[in-house]
Design a binder for these strands. Structure first.
Lengths: 351, 351
DNA sequence: TTATATATGCTCTAAAAGAGCACATAGCGA
DNA sequence: TCGCTATGTGCTCTTTTAGAGCATATATAA
């Protein structure tokens, strides 16, 4: 079927095409940076690698590992990433995937910031931190430090009802400056959907949407630093989570959301596990990532019947109870199922 | 919970952090380009906007719309994208999302290609081409022109059994040059999983994996052009789909895969539909995107019970049969469900 | 020995997915 | 006018999957 519905004018497509190949000289030169959200699970706590430095104007000290990308030295983005991560931290990354490219002006609010300019490409890396004691820089910090409202392992976190809900409701009730865009979703509705207020469901994957809503509402320090909120809000400043410099907390939010989504249809959870593990350890790792806790028997049925694991034949004693069978990741599942993953869905929120 | 498991050396994190803020000067300058896969559905055919030009060394004439990003002129990537798409084609984009950033050297195999260098950021845009007759450049081409093996609407496409399967099997049987990476998935297994050979399931979302496998096996013209395959393969050259210049077919594959995945959990299908439509028209549009055809009654039950649509009250006659009720997208679904979309899964492949 | 963890098998129910039957209502041609 | 055909629409039935709970097994620790 040939659909050549070309526009009426059709003024010289050759010229247009030519313009597309004669590329480099047309562009303003910018720098390329790579940001890595390097994730692991230590003692049932999901952690990300952070580097600490001088506080910025918002008091934020933490940054994600960051390095420039030089096309002279590295053929691929991922290759460049692995190289400087290794140099900076001593870590050898296992799994890595690209998250998002951030290039908005004002990302790095330096005075007089015009082009040239930095585009930064965010990456998510999953690693197993155990035994990786060669860490030469940076610290592992629980990601719930930065996003306390995401931790539903002990039920609905108090910070939602105590801090977030009232402040978001106040923000929703303020008269909105009659934006021009047609029919956007109302502030109150967005708050309800993002944070599961008024009985709405909690969606653990909406990590970025939640952070961006708080940013827009001026409830995270980065928003104040970037001048997006009133000084009034600044004065009543109970922190909602630990801020990071630049837009790194946004990148980390993207990474957490992606991780939570991805473990459901790809077996990446095993990137975070040792070779042999008990099903309960696996469950605790999944819970660390997703937030809510899971029904144990159903979880076991799920991972076993999905063919994700196979018994090693050994047992683990010293569990504090009956010894547990040890399992390992069953690679063959990749050849059998189109999208193998831990297809859990959270139980109804125990708020 | 404070997890400050810093590495032993911990040599001056302050210095590291400082290096991360003093950014731009560290970077080799490169150009930023934006590629857009602009997708619509015309007469039940999924189409992408292509611009035609002079054939490259592989005989490829088509490119995706492409434009430079200048941080001087545009504050955001998406803003820049919308601007030059409008200038080049006359289209006003509705929905747009970032796909992937491609920066590998050798992307544009120009002689003597070293840095400076172009990083290109791929975007997916969905639009409704009807009435958009202001198109001043480019043509709408069925995306199955570029990827004939993806069109399962009339059952399994013949090109798989006729061309792809035997040539992939031959490639799989060739001695692999003893790669260094540990335990990769065997070529034969990859072919089976990607293309649903030997009774394996067809996964309509693996568009990029399939294209990349064909590229790696030297079965698409771009692979020959880029020098990744033997001249022998070049001589026996039945095209597998229409090639594009540079890596644009890869970007389009990414866009198709993303679209196929996304309509299942976000109501983006309505970006491709007119305001009022019949359920059958909606179904045909979904089938155009996904490939396989769907069970009509179940499809209706699905979209209605999911609250995705509501009747307008009007009927559409001239359907060739009983008049059909007209529906429209029901926006309130965004406030009710965490991930509303056309959650279809394809029926067992009728091969 | 008992209390208390964790491990593991099994059942029951509800919801969702997959497939088909039956019939309604239009245009169109013999 | 009478089917024929194409689409629209309601309903049932079965299978599969998800959600939740009961019961029991086997360790460690006080």
């Amino acid at each position: 079927m040939n659909m050549e519905l070309s526009g009426r004018g059709k003024p010289s497509p050759e010229k247009a095409q030519r313009a597309q190949v004669r590329t480099a000289s047309d562009h303003a030169a910018v720098g390329i940076g790579l940001n890595a959200a390097i994730v692991a699970v230590l003692d049932n706590e999901p952690v990300a690698l952070a580097v600490r430095g001088e506080p910025d104007s918002a008091g934020a000290t933490d940054v994600l590992p960051f390095g420039p990308f030089s096309p002279r030295e590295h053929r691929t983005l991922e290759g460049g990433l692995r190289a400087w991560v290794h140099n900076q931290t001593g870590l050898d990354l296992g799994y890595a995937e690209q998250l998002y490219t951030f290039a908005d002006r004002g990302r790095l609010p330096e005075p007089g910031d015009v082009a040239p300019h930095v585009v930064s490409i965010g990456y998510l890396a999953l690693t197993q931190a155990n035994g990786q004691h060669g860490l030469t820089n940076g610290v592992w910090r629980s990601w719930y430090h930065y996003f306390p409202w995401e931790d539903w392992r002990r039920g609905r976190p108090d910070i939602i009802a105590g801090e977030i809900e009232p402040r978001l409701k106040a923000w929703a009730d303020k008269p909105v400056p009659s934006s021009s865009t047609a029919n956007p979703i109302a502030r109150g509705d967005r708050a309800r959907i993002c944070f599961g207020l008024d009985g709405a469901a909690w969606d653990e994957e909406k990590v970025l949407e939640r952070y961006e809503l708080l940013y827009e509402a001026g409830l995270v320090d980065e928003a104040l630093r970037d001048g997006r909120s009133s000084a009034q809000a600044w004065s009543v400043r109970p922190k909602l989570g630990l801020p990071m410099q630049a837009d790194h907390r946004r990148i980390l939010a993207t990474a957490i959301g992606r991780t939570r989504a991805k473990i459901k249809y790809r077996p990446v959870i095993f990137e975070l596990m040792p070779n042999d593990f008990t099903l309960y350890e696996l469950q605790k790792t999944v819970e660390a990532i997703l937030g809510p806790h899971l029904h144990k028997q159903n979880f076991r049925r799920l991972v076993e019947s999905a063919g994700l694991v196979e018994p090693t034949g050994d047992m683990k004693t010293r569990t504090g109870g009956r010894p547990a069978k040890l399992f390992r990741f069953r690679r063959e599942v990749l050849l059998e199922r189109p999208a193998p993953g831990v297809r859990v869905s959270a139980p109804p929120s125990r708020s």
